[in-house]
């Protein structure tokens, strides 16, 4: 395990580096620049930074307008507010017109912690991935977040929702690890079951893999950083190879990563599936780690889910 850093820090760092390289980059925020880490960019490039105040709908509209003049516009804010309050702006303008607006949505998930349920985005992946033309990326660590900033700016023409967290998370990927948009990253090979995870749950999954290994269960682990467009091939291949899947996300199990995987396997390769995530409930105040525990977003829960799915695999799909 490397240094503990948040994905929002990786985001801020990425914007600064990209800003040095690309004059066309503009960054916008909705009075949250110290939290989203766009303040790093703002200090270096004040004339290319626009703080529109606490106005997420206007944030998206202005970002759209800037993109119409050829800018790459990164619009930042808390994920709950940018994805929820500005959904219509994102759908009807940014996505419908396929504008080059990237949404840097920080403070996603339950790990926002003490601020409580109003500030914990647990539905944003669902809200964003359902919109045509939208792309959704959920980095697992700061290094991946920094690379994602470059990739979505330089390789993707059109809107991207980049989901970022508040709290520090362990480094999983290295500087040398490739970040390929739309391609799942295999972190571990295994034959009994595949865990498909994103964001902070990749780390929990890694711990689960180790634990299961001691019990003689061989687990394949995919870091599924691009939720949309999904790497269908990786999912289908994993389903064929291990014939049992577990998804793990810091999000409602409805409509998120688990929903996406089930849509694909139901159509292409039906195999038993278990989903680890928030189960149709709002969050609450507490320490991030306490909340992860309370809402079942832990390695322990992933291990349990693996055992459940292996049982199903045995009864439903006798080989």
């Amino acid at each position: 395990m490397g240094k503990m850093r948040s994905t929002r820090e990786g985001y801020g760092e990425g914007l600064l580096l990209l800003g040095e390289k690309n004059n066309n980059l503009v960054v916008l925020d909705a009075d949250t620049s110290c939290s989203t880490k766009t303040d790093i960019f703002a200090r270096k490039f004040p004339h290319r930074f626009f703080n529109v105040g606490v106005a997420e709908q206007n944030l998206m509209g202005i970002a759209a307008g800037l993109s119409l003049t050829g800018k790459i516009a990164f619009a930042s804010g808390y994920s709950i507010f940018v994805s929820g309050k500005a959904w219509d702006q994102i759908r009807n303008i940014i996505c419908y017109c396929k504008l080059n607006v990237k949404i840097g949505a920080t403070h996603a998930g339950i790990t926002v912690g003490a601020d409580g349920a109003t500030h914990q985005a647990l539905e944003d992946i669902a809200l964003m991935r359902v919109i045509p033309n939208m792309n959704v990326v959920v980095p697992c660590d700061a290094v991946e977040a920094r690379k994602a900033v470059f990739t979505i700016a330089e390789e993707i023409q059109g809107p991207v929702y980049l989901r970022l967290g508040r709290g520090a998370v362990p480094s999983i990927t290295q500087e040398s690890t490739p970040f390929i948009f739309g391609k799942a990253l295999t972190l571990n090979e295994g034959k009994d079951v595949t865990i498909i995870a994103c964001g902070i749950m990749v780390w929990e999954s890694l711990k689960a893999v180790e634990e299961l290994k001691e019990e003689g269960i061989s687990v394949k682990l995919l870091n599924f950083h691009t939720i949309k467009p999904p790497d269908e091939e990786a999912i289908i291949q994993a389903a064929k190879q291990t014939r049992a899947l577990v998804t793990a996300e810091e999000h409602q199990i409805i409509g998120g990563l688990g929903g996406m995987v089930s849509e694909i396997i139901a159509r292409e390769m039906p195999v038993p599936l278990e989903m680890v995530g928030v189960k149709n409930s709002f969050g609450e105040s507490g320490e991030a780690s306490e909340l992860m525990e309370k809402f079942g977003l832990t390695a322990k829960e992933i291990v349990k889910a693996v055992k459940r799915v292996l049982k199903k695999k045995k009864t439903i799909l006798p080989l």
Binding site: G61, A64, L66, D88, I93, Y96
Partner: peptide, 23 residues
């Protein structure tokens, strides 16, 4: 120049557009 129909959005887009020209 841009899709419209969901009311209330054009002025924000225009602000962004005008900002881009200023920049």
């Amino acid at each position: 120049e841009v899709s419209s129909g969901s009311l209330g959005q054009g002025l924000s887009i225009s602000v962004g557009n005008a900002l881009g020209f200023k920049l």
